Simulated scan of single mutants.
Amino acid sequence: MLLGVVEIYLYHYFDKEIGPFVNLSDLPVNEAQSILNTIKVKKPNSQSAKRHDKYVEYRHNCENIIRAEFAKKGGVMNRISPHYMVIEHSPWLSTWYESSTFIKIPIEEFDIKTISFTYGDSMPTFSPTINDGKEYRKKLYTYDEILKIIEKYGLPQNWNDDGRYGPERYIEAHIWSDETISKYRKRIDSI
């Protein structure tokens, strides 16, 4: 079980050719959509190429929800949109890119007040079309709160990596600061 682990890691999966922590949400909608369209042509086997035409709009809407929910919990947000990571390794996410790799960062390197979590990807978590009554639907968590949910349900990738039991395949971490992220971005750039 995760809570018995000495150190918790956050993972960020990305395409080696593009680099880490490149976020479509940091761009104007039309520019983000243009990049997504280019990915569909140039990297047709990537998960990003399978996203629907309204993805950017839906992602922005979801980020508005998680930002508002985190503000209610007193979260510290130094960015308009978060960087995305997951708690522990996700076999499924590791297949998303044609040239897939990852960065793993001990959670202790972050200011915990700048991280929110959803049990599963935030988009299905807050989707109006998913109403299965699970207690973690439509909920955003702080670090202490997500540890209690993990204690209760475990890591989704351990029981649902293939998505057979619902949309939750990992725990998404929303990093609302560039402080730790910038250190890792520089390390990759220098290699």
Rank of each mutant, 00 (worst) to 15 (best):
K152W: 04
A68N: 13
T129A: 12
Y165D: 08
K148P: 05
I105E: 05
I65S: 07
N131Y: 01
V86N: 04
Y55K: 06
I115Q: 08
Y119P: 02
K113F: 13
V56Y: 02
D161E: 12
R185A: 14
Y58R: 11
W159P: 01
H174K: 09
S182E: 15
A173C: 02
S116L: 03
I146E: 01
Y58L: 14
I35K: 09
K104T: 08
S34Q: 12
Y13I: 07
F70E: 00
Y9L: 01
S177K: 00
Y55G: 10
V29L: 05
W96K: 11
K186S: 06
V41E: 05
L24F: 13
R137W: 08
I80N: 15
R51Q: 06
I149Y: 06
D144N: 13
E98R: 02
T142D: 07
I8W: 03
E98W: 01
D53W: 01
E88G: 06
P106G: 03
N61D: 14
S100W: 12
E108M: 11
K16S: 10
Y58A: 14
V56A: 10
T95A: 04
Y153F: 15
I191L: 12
A71C: 11
P28K: 06
I8R: 03
Y153V: 00
M85Q: 04
E63L: 13
G19N: 06
Q157S: 12
K183Y: 12
S34T: 09
I39K: 09
I103E: 00
I107P: 03
T125Q: 04
N160H: 04
N45D: 03
L3P: 03
I130W: 10
Y9E: 04
P91E: 01
I175Y: 00
I107Y: 01
I188R: 06
L155G: 03
D121R: 12
P106A: 06
E135P: 09
I87C: 13
S81A: 14
Q47Y: 15
S177H: 07
Y136H: 14
I115C: 04
L27G: 08
I175R: 02
R51I: 06
N23E: 11
I8G: 00
H12Q: 08
R164Y: 12
I103K: 05
L10T: 01
Y58F: 12
Y9W: 03
D144G: 11
A71V: 15
H52P: 00
S46F: 05
N131K: 06
R169Y: 07
A32S: 07
D15L: 09
Y141K: 07
K50H: 13
S34Y: 11
R79T: 01
Y58E: 11
V29N: 13
